[in-house]
Design a protein around this nucleic acid. Structure first.
Length: 219
DNA sequence: AGCACGATTAACT
DNA sequence: GTTAATCGTGCTC
């Protein structure tokens, strides 16, 4: 049996790009009363500082962005398009407003609970979008400011397995591309490749589960 | 106090 | 490929 290691505050207190890249393959865990929900993080985006015109902190300190100015390892939630909540992890040392947006997860635990919250679709589509992540894990404004690194946290991240960069030899590795949905944001922010994702997590799943001493509930 | 718009999704054609 | 749904936020008046 292998013991999962919670990612400590020092993990989040680093360069946002490094944190974002290393979050791919980590396990997001949500304790919901009797339910334990978890999944592999498969897609993220980095938003870094007031100079990044794609980042909400471009507006400076406001009631909305205050969490990003606080200590790393906390949750920044925001509301988008009038209907979707977005989950972010605060990064960098306190005072530097930056965060990683969690854009995709492959559900691995609490499958039945998550499936019930989603329309009938393949499992790979349950949480393959930032709004879907929050629907699946039942996250909204109540999670804003939560501490991922507190011992009592009901939402936290565990170390998974390292996933290599994509290459000709490894098409299922991690790719970095421009962030999604920043159509009106000026360059270079619009095209800077701060989105990280794996096209398909399934080739990694066996090793991923093994690192936790677990098996996929559906296989 | 009012307004335009968005780090999106699902259900269409 | 197109579009409606829907409301918090930041900016302007």
């Amino acid at each position: 049996m292998v013991f999962a290691q919670r990612l400590p505050r020092a993990f989040f207190a680093r360069s946002t790009l490094q944190v974002a890249r290393e979050l791919i393959g980590a396990r997001l865990v949500r304790l919901e009363g009797e339910n334990i929900l978890a999944g592999v993080i498969t897609e993220v985006e980095a938003y870094i500082g007031e100079e990044d015109l794609g980042c909400h902190a471009r507006a400076g300190w406001t009631p909305r962005t205050q969490v990003m100015y606080g200590p790393p390892g906390h949750v920044y939630m925001f509301f988008s398009y009038g209907m979707h909540w977005m989950l972010n992890f605060v990064t960098e040392p306190e005072g530097c407003p930056a965060a990683v947006l969690i854009r995709g997860i492959f559900p691995c635990r609490g499958i039945r609970v998550i499936a019930a919250r989603r329309t009938p679709q393949p499992r790979s589509s349950w949480a393959n979008g930032p709004g879907k992540v929050c629907r699946s894990f039942n996250l909204d404004r109540a999670a804003n400011g939560a501490d991922l690194c507190s011992p009592q946290a009901s939402l936290y991240v565990e170390q998974g397995i390292p996933i290599p960069d994509a290459s000709d030899d490894c098409p299922w590795g991690v790719t970095n591309r421009p962030r999604v949905g920043l159509n009106k944001v000026p360059e270079p922010w619009k095209s800077i490749p701060w989105r990280f994702y794996v096209q398909d997590i399934r080739p990694h799943l066996r090793a991923w589960y093994k690192s936790f001493g677990e098996r996929d509930p559906l296989f």
